[in-house]
Structures are given as structure tokens and as C-alpha cells.
Design a protein around this nucleic acid. Structure first.
Lengths: 199, 199, 199, 199
DNA sequence: TCGTAAGCGAGACGGTACGTCGAGTCTTGCT
DNA sequence: AGCAAGACTCGACGTACCGTCTCGCTTACGA
């Protein structure tokens, strides 16, 4: 998280409840209007809070949005005993998170902002990495089971698994259904295995 | 392109020169300041044009930016006689276009906007598809040469090739160098081949 | 009248019909929307004429409006054989012209403009003086009949007769009815007579 | 005055200082450039205030100007012990206020606006009536001293006194000097007395 | 138990940009 | 040349949203 200043111990302490209400309102409005349509006044109103209260905790709208996103539940790590199934489920969960529904546009908005604002970039990084963690677990388990080569570069593997879906969501705008996810996952796995055998 | 209304032959015609100046100025400022830092007044000034003239042609800043991007040169189709080299070059070109430098944040900004504005979405679609065209040519040539299976789904293939790079640019913010591009391209090709053999 | 330049004899001559249509449209729109709400585009549309055609004949909106007003019919000179009746009728006619109805705000608008624009001032002067002419006739007849002293300053007399009505119309916004007009006219006449006797 | 809404005691109160600065700047610029040349941006700059702050208090430029005028100092009530002198001084003061100098065009501009905007009309009314108050005092004193008949209609009397001067200022554009004022005042008084004797 | 340092709601404020409007000029093709 | 149509410049308008500041009040800790 990223509260502006660590609550000093003198004076009236900041209400934890308030912070939660703000983040929740942010998330809801983010979902409804997208980042570009996100209004701080509205967040304040929905959260039943005043603007200064918001700015006492987060230095800017972007930071707030980023923090709200960080709070999103991490993906749960599936375990069907089968690599492909696990990965398909993970990609689908990710899709559900910000790909399918109205959250779709937060990610690009944040990406846009990051290009100009390295400070924010650093802030968001960890949250995004967290979302990728379950992929690592699943992939490692795949390696242990011998379904994947041990020389695997995990980072590249995740990019490969997630990339096609993201391309559709963020760029082409094409629909992503289960069949598509399964296909791309299968090809990625096959590619990773094939390459490892060569080198 | 997307001029607000198709110029009828009556009255003083819209100066084509003016449109070009506006688009060029937009592109230049987009490159320098990014989409978030793009100012219509400034475009007007740089283009030597008045604000109303801009708004007579494009309904909003986003539409203008989208149109300016559409005007970006299409990727040239490389032909080294080698599938992998061709694809690596294509992906790298794409990266150079909006992935690397200051144009980086236009794409996400547009992506963000599209989610809310289907009209704009329709506008952008073709331009994006055009950028993908050279991939299709190269892939088809690969099939002809027998480097790729003929059952290949071209759309999926392009997603697979481009997706990892995009993921880094738009989401994780990690650096994309030539080695990375080559690796992901190689894996994708291998995967596409491997899968075809199975089914 | 004030055509911008006297029609040159070479080339196609200006249509007299056109000028009339413009002035008529101006007058109509002036009546409906007042001077502040007068739009040149609208005049052009109503007159079935293009904007440049208007500006070829009048150098500005104000000049056009002034010209349109000049075209208003002069007050007819009443002759009831009775000074008071004649003056009451004249003041009432003036009131009807621009005091009562929607033309009410042209006069002040012109007045406002005159303060800044002496050229226009000169233009309007004569038209206004023309409207006052019948007063002079009636007053002179009154002098001849011995109803008024011969030493009378006519200009001051007209101001005195017209002023109270104008004050209500332009400044206080109070209603002006026949009774009010008759009262002020009667007092003015009495004052003019009384003063003449003193000096 | 006419602040957009009566300031409630909740939240940060509107700075009275700010309002004063805006009105003062308005008045100054009004005097320098006239109403037609009045620019809101400039008012903001001169007042050291932002445009939204202005529009938070007054719904439009006209309302602001009207309010600024309302703030003009009321005429002081002279007392030379002589009716005519008092009235001449009052009319001259009025002339100085908006008749002589650059404020001349505000009054007509407001008059023009009032015709279309009854809300504004209501706003201005009181201010104008206030300016007339000293006339009432002086006239009443004249009645007490027996210089004027007690049956006098004060409203009509003021119109009579002020009307001629206004006619010149707003309509004919003729010069108004002391001699003119004295003459019209004298005639008006004489008329008022003469009429009273008759009835 | 009370003072004091903060939290807080409400909303004013400066700043910066937006998109729009209207006046008056310019350009094209036709008459 | 005149003219219709409409593009164009210029300059201003009124609005939106951000992030900060200022009130008056409330809350909790610590002397």
C-alpha cells in the first residue's frame, strides 16, 4: 500500500474504515467508468468522504487507482494435476479480472501513465508481479512433474501464456473465449518444450 | 481517415494541406509529450491553424490522435528468405513504432478509450489490422516454403508472436531487447509447428 | 443608407432585391431576439443570402442594424388643432416604435456602441433626428397658434417631452401608459410656458 | 448584491475579500474598456482570482457587471436650502456617474440585456431605485419648504428631471453641460408647480 | 479531565485545458 | 464582377476536473 505519510502517533488516528471505503468506491467507479472517466469528487461522494481525506492518504488519483488495483484478490493457484488445465484456468481467471468486464481499461490507463511516471511504475510493479505468481507455481509444478523442461525461463513462459489474450483484449478488441485460451496455452507449452529439446 | 463529414463539392473546400499539417503536428506533439500531455491549443499553434478548424474535422482530441496514428506508415514486409528472421524484424519494427519510444502511451490511452467508446473503437480497428497485415504475408510465405503447417490459424499466430512483447510494454514494463524478441518468436514458431503435427 | 462602396459599374450589378431582403431579415430578427441576440449567420439564412454578400454592403453588424433602423417609417405628423393632443400622440407613436415591443433594446444597444464608435455615431445621428422632426413641426405650429412662447428652444423642448418616457423604458423599466404620457406632456408644456414668461 | 447562492456556514466560506477584488476589478475595467470590451479573463487576472471563482459567484458577465454597478456609491443628498440648486447638483452627479465618462455604455448595455432577461432586470431594479432616492429626499424637502405642491407625484417628477439629460446621453449623443441641466431642471420645476395650481 | 494535535466534511480556490460560439475574411466554382 | 456555400482566424466564453487550502467541528491520546 502507499499511504502518503505514515500515520503519526499523535492526534486523532486515521480511520482504517475510511481507507477501505475509499478504495472500494474507487474500484467500483473504475469498473463503471474506466480510468479516464474516474472522478475524484465522485469517489469522495460514493465513499462518504471528503476530498482532502483522500489526498491525505494518496498523493494523486493514479496512486489511488493503483492502490485499489493492488487490493484486488490474487489469483488462486489451481491444481488439477494437469499443467494445461491449470494454465487455462489461470489465464481465464486473469481474463475475468481485467479482461472481460469493465476493468478492462484500467490496465492500459495505468500503462499509459507509467510511461510518464516512473514513480508510479515502481508502485504498480509489485502488484502486477503478484498476479503472475500463481503462474510461477503452476509452471514449477509442471517442471517437477516433468511436463516442462527444467531450463525454462519462467518470465518468458508467462509472457507467452498471457500475451495472446492481452493482445486481443487491449489491442484488437477481439473476443476471447475458452477455446481460444486453450489453443494458445497448448501452443505455448508445445513451443516451450520443443525449444528446450533443441538447445 | 475520419473527417467529421465527407466534404461536399459545394462551398470552399477543406484544405487538404491543413488536415495534413494538423495530423503532422499531432504526431509530433504526441511523440514529444505523450497522449496525456497532448494539448489541442498547442496542436493548433504548431499546425498554424485555429482550434475551431481542428474541431470542424475531428470531434475530439482522441479521434484526432487516433487518426494521426492511423496515418503512421505501415510496416514494410521483410523478406530474408527465412521465417524467423522476417518475424523478428517485424516484431522489432512494431516495437519501434509504439513500444519503445515516447509513442508508447498512445496505444494504451487508445485502448483505455475504446472500452468506453465503441464508435472510436470501430475507427481504430482498421488501422490496427493494417499493422498486422505484413505478418500475414510473412506467415503465408512460411507456409508456402513448408516452414509452417498449412492448417495454421493466422490470427492466433500473430497474437502469439506479438503478445509477449506487448505484455512487457503495456503491463510489466520490462525491457524488450532483440534477444527477447528472438526467443519468443522462436518458441512461438516451434509451438505452432508442434501442435499442427499432433492434430 | 450606408452601402460599403458605391456599386461599381463594371461586372454584375448588385441586386437591389437582395439588399431589401437583408434589411427586412435584420429588422425581423432584431425584433425577435434584440440586438445582443442578433446573429449575422441567421440574417443571411433568413434573407436567403450568403454572409459575404452582407459584408460586401455593410462593414459591420452594427452598421447593418443601424441602417435597418433608419429604414423604419418616420412618424406621421398629427394635427388635431390641439398642441397637447398632437404631442401625446407623437410620444405614444415613439413608444410604440421602440419602446413598447421587442425593438426596445436596439436603441440602448446602439447607444452602447456609439460610445465606443464615433463613426457609427455619425451614421445614426441623422436617423434619430429624423424621428424627432415631427415634434418640431408640431411645436412650431403650437408657437404659431400662440400655445407656446416663440422664444422656445425646440431641442430642449423635445428632450423634455420624450425624456420621461425614455427613462421608464430604458432605465427603470416601469410601464408607460397613456395617462403617464399625458401627464408628463402636460407638465412639460406648462413648464415651457411658465419659464418663458419669467425671462 | 447577488452572490449565486447565499453562503451557508458549512465548508470553507467564500472570501469576502475575493468578492470585493472581483467587483473592483470589474468596475475598473468597465470604466476603461466599456461593457462590450469587458473580458472575464482580464477581470480574473486583475482581481488575482481564477475564472471559475468568478463564475461560482455570478452566473454571467452581465450579472457581474450589474452587481459591480450596484456597488457604486449612492449619490449624496445635497442641501443648499434651495430646491433648484439641489436638483441641479443631483442631476449633474448622476451625469458624472454614468453619463459623462467611459461608464456611459454600461447603462445602455444593461438596458439592452434587461429586455431579454427578466431575472437580471429584477436584479438591477433596486440599484437603480437607490440612485433615485436622494431625489426623493430633496423633493420632499422642497414640498416642506413650500417650493413644491404637496400633491406632487414624486416618481413622475424624477423622470421629468432626469429624462432630458438621459435622452441626450443615450439617444441623441448631444453634449450635456451645466447650462442645459439648469435649464431643464428649472422648466421641470415650473411645470410641476403650474400643473398643481390648475388641478 | 482536559488540552492539544490531528482527522474530518464541506466546499472555496488557483490552475489548466476543454470544446463552443460568433464576427468578419477568404476561397472556390458558378452565373 | 456578384454571389452561395462554407472554410478559416481570432478571440472570448463558460465548464470541468485536479489537487490544495480553509473553515468549524469531532475524536482520541497523553499530561
Amino acid at each position: 500500500m502507499s499511504s502518503r505519510s505514515d500515520t503519526p502517533s499523535i492526534g486523532r488516528p486515521r480511520s482504517e474504515e475510511t481507507s477501505r471505503a475509499i478504495l472500494e468506491a474507487t474500484l467500483r467507479l473504475l469498473a463503471r467508468h474506466g480510468f479516464a472517466g474516474l472522478r475524484v469528487d465522485q469517489i469522495a461522494e460514493v465513499a462518504g468522504v471528503s476530498k482532502p481525506t483522500i489526498y491525505r492518504r494518496w498523493p494523486s488519483k493514479i496512486h489511488l487507482a493503483a492502490d485499489a488495483l493492488s487490493g484486488l484478490p490474487d489469483l488462486s493457484t489451481p491444481d488439477h494435476g494437469d499443467l494445461e488445465s491449470d494454465l487455462v484456468e489461470l489465464v481465464t481467471s486473469l481474463l475475468d479480472l481485467f479482461g472481460k468486464a469493465p476493468l478492462a481499461d484500467i490496465l492500459p490507463a495505468l500503462a499509459a501513465e507509467r510511461a510518464q511516471n516512473p514513480e508510479l511504475s515502481a508502485l504498480i510493479g509489485p502488484a502486477i508481479r503478484d498476479k503472475r505468481k500463481p503462474f510461477f507455481s503452476v509452471l514449477r509444478r509442471g517442471i517437477e512433474r516433468g511436463e516442462l523442461p527444467s531450463t525454462l525461463n519462467l518470465d518468458v513462459a508467462v509472457d507467452l501464456l498471457v500475451g495472446p489474450m492481452l493482445t486481443r483484449v487491449l489491442v484488437t478488441g477481439d473476443v476471447v473465449d475458452e477455446r481460444y485460451v486453450r489453443t494458445t496455452v497448448r501452443i505455448s507449452i508445445a513451443g516451450l518444450i520443443a525449444i528446450a529439446e533443441l538447445s
